[in-house]
């Protein structure tokens, strides 16, 4: 039974389907959350994620990837958890009222965005592959196209098309929220 069927059954109240979904997805969600949160928080977020999945399965559309849907819920729950905790710690940083909430990025969001990005970069391919190299040189090290072309020993046109491919892959990965191992079967 594929993930879409499972979620459909969950929507109709089948708790055994939720259990099966948990068995399939809790592991990789835990791994991804653990990169950002301490273990105890990961457990709390996972609990809230699957309870939210149980309650909200009716809103799932099959064209969403199941993994992406679950990660989306997990992300929101993690952000909620962090937001509930952080205010106490931020109290000491005396930010002027007009700066807070606008220019300063929310630490929770930043942490999660970073986790998302790391996973999306991994989706570009293994270390050393053409796309990863382009990403590293052009976007992480901020070099111009001509320099990257020289370093890699390929024509600038090739660099540009690879960069285009990198952007496309990243956009897709960030939107779906899936990495190779967590994708829908």
């Amino acid at each position: 039974m594929d993930d879409d069927d499972l979620v459909a059954r969950i929507a109709s109240g089948d708790d055994a389907a939720l259990r099966e979904l948990f068995g399939r997805h809790a592991s990789w969600l835990a791994v991804r959350l653990r990169a950002v949160l301490p273990a105890a928080d990961v457990e709390d977020v996972l609990q809230e994620t699957f309870l939210a999945a149980w309650r909200g399965a009716g809103g799932y559309r099959p064209q969403d990837a199941c993994g992406g849907w679950l990660w989306g819920i997990a992300r929101r729950q993690a952000a909620l958890l962090l937001r509930r905790r952080k205010p106490a710690e931020q109290a000491g940083t005396a930010l002027p009222a007009d700066l807070a909430d606008r220019d300063v990025p929310d630490p929770a969001e930043t942490a999660l965005a970073r986790a998302d990005l790391e996973v999306a970069i991994a989706a570009l391919g293994p270390d050393g592959s053409p796309e990863r190299e382009v990403w590293r040189l052009m976007y992480e090290q901020d070099r111009p196209v001509a320099e990257v072309a020289e370093l890699l020993g390929v024509p600038p046109g090739t660099v540009k098309s690879r960069a285009h491919r990198v952007r496309r892959l990243l956009r897709a990965a960030l939107r779906d929220g899936t990495a190779a191992e967590g994708g829908a079967r």
Partner: peptide
């Protein structure tokens, strides 16, 4: 499916 981190107790979750 990857293994969960060692310090996360999925059973308890």
């Amino acid at each position: 499916v990857p293994e969960a981190p060692a310090d996360v107790d999925l059973g308890r979750v």
